[in-house]
Design a protein around this nucleic acid. Sequence first.
RNA 1: GUCCCUAUCGUCUAGAGGCCUAGGACAUCAGGUUUUCAUCCUGGUAACCCGGGUUCGAAUCCCGGUGGGGAUGCCA
Length: 533
Amino acid sequence: MPVIARFAPSPTGQVHIGNIRTAIFNWLFARHEKGQFLLRIEDTDLERSTREAIDTLLECMNWLGLDYDGDIMYQTKQLPVHLAAAERLAQAGHAYRLDPGDAKSPLYFRIPYHCSDFPFVRDAGEAKIELAAGSAVEISRSGLVFRTLGAKGKVAENQYCLAGFLDLTVLDPAGQVLFRLDESNLPQILGAVEPVTIQNAAALCFRRREVFYHDLVKGDLSKPLDSMRDFIVIRSDGSPVFHLANVCDDITQGVTHIVRGDDHVENTYRHLFLFQLLGAQIPVYAHLPMIVNAQGKPYSKRDGDAFVGDYREKGFLAEALFNYLSLLGWSPGDNREKMSRAEIVEAFHIEKAQRSPAQLDPVKLASMNGLYLADLSDADFAALVKSFADRRGWFAGVDPDLFRRTASLMHSRTKILTDVESWGYFFSADFTPDPKAVRKNLSAPGIWEALSELRARMEKVEDGAFTAGAAEALLRALEEERGMKQFALNQPLRVVVTGTAVGAGIYETVELLGRNETCSRILRAETSWQHEA
RNA sequence: GUCCCUAUCGUCUAGAGGCCUAGGACAUCAGGUUUUCAUCCUGGUAACCCGGGUUCGAAUCCCGGUGGGGAUGCCA
């Protein structure tokens, strides 16, 4: 059976990092299985869904190379299908309104009492629930309401679906049967609006059933039916609720595998009933754990860097982000980390996805990005940086050749493209020196005199002869003459001409700056920084 | 409250009962290369949440606890 997977985001604002991870895993899964990857826009929240958000989403997917098959399905267009499905459920007796006379009352889906032969329902044995002493039990077509005693002696009200209590008997404190639910009174209960109330109850005895399914990521999962409730499928304004719309669309699109966030695990137990009663094949599920922030909490909008756009803006490469994100909660099983897209597709097995949440580490992401940048040729790197800088209006009007040479000097020092912002001193003398660097490197006695002398000697060098090698020779000679330690002038010179203590080789740097610029920067420092140092 | 899920270095992970003296990567520390930084190379510190079982043998299986997350919406 060919695999049909889908990504079904709600287009509300920016694209969340956890969301795009789900998209990536779906895409990888579909591509690995040589199946289809469909895109469905769940735009039913009219208040929050905007065209702009949809465009942002499509752009993000395009940027990350997540191509989808076929046309996009827009959920709002499927309204008639959703409504027809609701109607079918109602016709078959699987749905009801709390107030049958009021069409404005929301339509509830009822988890069917007769479901023991469903492929995802199994018997879980005899069960008994002790009730708060002398409390009442209400039984109605929307389920059971009963009171239990909490650990601190507090009475808690519980409401669960009727299907949770097969062959229910309500016992009084003496153990006598007060009420028995069976085929004889079931139709009356389902047909009546008013609940049957049993006073002075002490315990509930019934056969427990549970919903179960196998999750490709989480393994065998189950949930007792007596912890589930009937749920609304059509709101009082007539619009379909997520559960119905989502399931209907998956049926319409022929989705065979649902890969999504594990916040949907609980929904799955409900959706199984919908697929079953709508006569559809039940899909295979895979629930991915969430991505969490540095505090170990799920990413929220307030975190910053919660959106794909943030990473793009900061100068992360799509391939690097893709690679990193594919490794968050998944691993090929060997020690490979930096992998090409094709390699990842080849190695991707959804069953190997992690079951617990993963924390996104921006430092490791940057390291990964640095690996991808290092793969680029100097020329490609320069071109990439250029277009990145241009978009930001950095270094406008800089000589292209100077820019290229700077880029090749700084290539191995660049992890993310925003690092490039610090290149300003190559192109302009308009920088603020780092006070710490100044203090550390320019306060030794005799330093300023030496720099002044160095400048004088540099000024005598022929224009075309001002190379890295020439600069190095000047420094060495001067150090020796003045009895200074070898390289003692390197850092002072660097601070004076770049304002910082770190960077590319200083000889190459001054060669790039040129004789005039180098000398004028030294002179400027002599006149304006010297006394502060 | 109830239900569901989850737990290996700081972080991402390898690990499918003996290949584990627990491997890799990022981070970190030390050393080497080097004019600083970065790159590159070498080495180090660093983890099986706790308690019971099962077994000749448990990071791996089972039970309990604890921590974390999720669900419990006329949000999706």
